[in-house]
Design a protein around this nucleic acid. Structure first.
Lengths: 207, 207
DNA sequence: GTGAGGTCTGAACGCATGTTCAATACCTTA
DNA sequence: TAAGGTATTGAACATGCGTTCAGACCTCAC
């Protein structure tokens, strides 16, 4: 496989941006071609059809998230040994994983918006991870996930992804972009402090 | 089997559903007309254009939320007198305001995800209300909104709306629809219990 | 050199779209 | 009953869409 700046990859990246920003139907083959500085015919030549192009984009993005989920699972396993040790610091957020101008989060947003089945599957992976975390820490006496851990895990995920999906309106309200590098700390700090409320008094005492 | 609404309202409701479910571009005038059991020409006759129809839908939905916000503000004022009295029970969620099959939440979802400016304005109203609530209750010693109340208010809003925006995937994960009448209690209960973590020990003691 | 095979273009095609318009049906008011 | 406005239709139109295709261009192997 060749380097990633081939014309074919350039077309995919251009369509990634347009699909994410404007939606699949609104992004036309002609404008994708213009953005990638090629002819419309070449787009079809490389990807067979507009649907084929979308599939390639999906694959690309889902691959990234799958890899990420794998890393998170590994990190989770490693963490399982050192239980009770600053769990708050390990409760990472989606938003911190990608640079502010990356098209990855906007594209995920689009996939979730269109209820893509595979986006759901990715989400389910993160849900399982979160729920597992809550239960394990509960059993270790570190954390109280409330009366309904499954719903609690879903709510935490909803809050995290709500930040991704509502990035624009939230920036409006707060006066800063909570997902941009400059704002992620302020956003993340409060997420942590809200999460920390679930820690048991014992765990709170030992920072 | 036609409804007893006027033809014009029937067209608007049909397009409301289609816009919400499939997006503005994907919902064609012809299919809207078919859903409303009229001819394509009549749609344009009543609303001038497809854009005019969208504007009418926006107006309809935004009107509903404006009215709701007004009611919430009134309720908030009334509550201000009886401060400290079961604040948890008054922390309502978006999702509980509409029946499960109403197109209102799906349409709001669509507006938020297309970054409609007026949807942002509506959201800002709810944000201001939430933030005001947090600050007032903090000053009354009932609640601790954490180190950054503005971000906290935004995060709570993100969680609430995250439920709306991710309804499909969440239903998948949880095995029940958290926004349907049968599931809203279970979802709402955990939202309450998470919110209750912010109450100060004094307030917690007095149910 | 020459031909094969991939890359790339731009015009063309068929189709679905939003919109227009003349014609018809319905309903009110005089 | 007559008139006039509104509601409604369905065919027609222009436009932009995804896609096709013949051919030009490039790059190697022989």
């Amino acid at each position: 496989m060749r380097s990633d700046l081939t014309t074919k990859a350039r077309i995919r990246d251009a369509s990634l941006r347009l699909f994410a920003d404007e939606g699949f139907e609104a992004a036309t083959v002609r404008r994708i071609a213009a953005a990638a500085e090629v002819s419309p015919g070449l787009v079809v030549h490389h990807y067979g059809s507009k649907d084929g192009l979308r599939a390639a984009c999906d694959e690309h993005i889902l691959g990234l998230f799958d890899g990420l989920l794998g890393e998170a699972q590994v990190a989770d396993q490693e963490l399982a040994a050192a239980l009770g040790e600053e769990p708050t610091q390990k409760f990472g957020s989606f938003a911190e994983l990608f640079p502010g101008d990356s098209p990855v989060l906007p594209y995920l947003r689009r996939m979730l918006l269109t209820d893509d089945e595979r986006a759901r599957a990715i989400l389910r992976g993160w849900y399982d991870l979160t729920l597992g975390l809550l239960l394990r820490w509960r059993d270790a006496g570190v954390l109280d996930p409330g009366p309904d851990p499954q719903v609690r895990a879903a709510a935490l995920l909803a809050m995290d992804l709500g930040g991704v999906l509502l990035r624009g309106p939230l920036s409006d309200m707060l006066g800063f972009d909570p997902l941009a590098p400059e704002g992620i700390d302020r956003w993340g700090t409060d997420m942590y402090s809200l999460f920390a409320l679930m820690l048991t008094p014992d765990a709170k005492g030992t920072p």
